[in-house]
């Protein structure tokens, strides 16, 4: 499963990727998790199952949802508190929920 975290260019998104990967490993979930700046989203869509936006990108949600509707890729915004507390498990759960 390929999960994309899209945000400005934030430093902490890459910390989040590590946290989520650890949780995925523990739970034996095969997940390819990548953090990319939002502007490179289009180039990275191939094989993507779900896109999560950083909390500061909330205002772009609608636009991106319509853009990705053709690709059948679900999009949502990471909860700002989960993001701040670096809750890798919660965010991974959110991604899994969206795929289903």
């Amino acid at each position: 499963m390929k999960i994309i975290l899209a945000c400005d260019a934030g430093m902490s998104t890459s910390i989040m990727v590590t946290k989520m990967k650890n949780v995925a490993d523990e739970k034996d979930i095969a997940a390819d998790i990548q953090a990319i700046p939002l502007k490179f989203l289009d180039e990275n869509l191939e094989g993507t199952d779900v896109v999560l936006l950083g909390p500061q990108m909330k205002y772009t949600l609608e636009k991106i949802q319509t853009r990705l509707a053709d690709h059948n890729i679900p999009v949502d915004v990471i909860d700002s508190l989960d993001y701040g507390m670096m809750r890798g498990d919660k965010i991974l759960e959110q991604a899994l929920r969206l795929v289903k």
């Binding site: 902490s12 700002s80 670096m86």
Partner: peptide, 12 residues
Amino acid sequence: INEPILFGLPII
């Protein structure tokens, strides 16, 4: 690096 504080407390 302080995104945890900015988003977690939150300050923003």
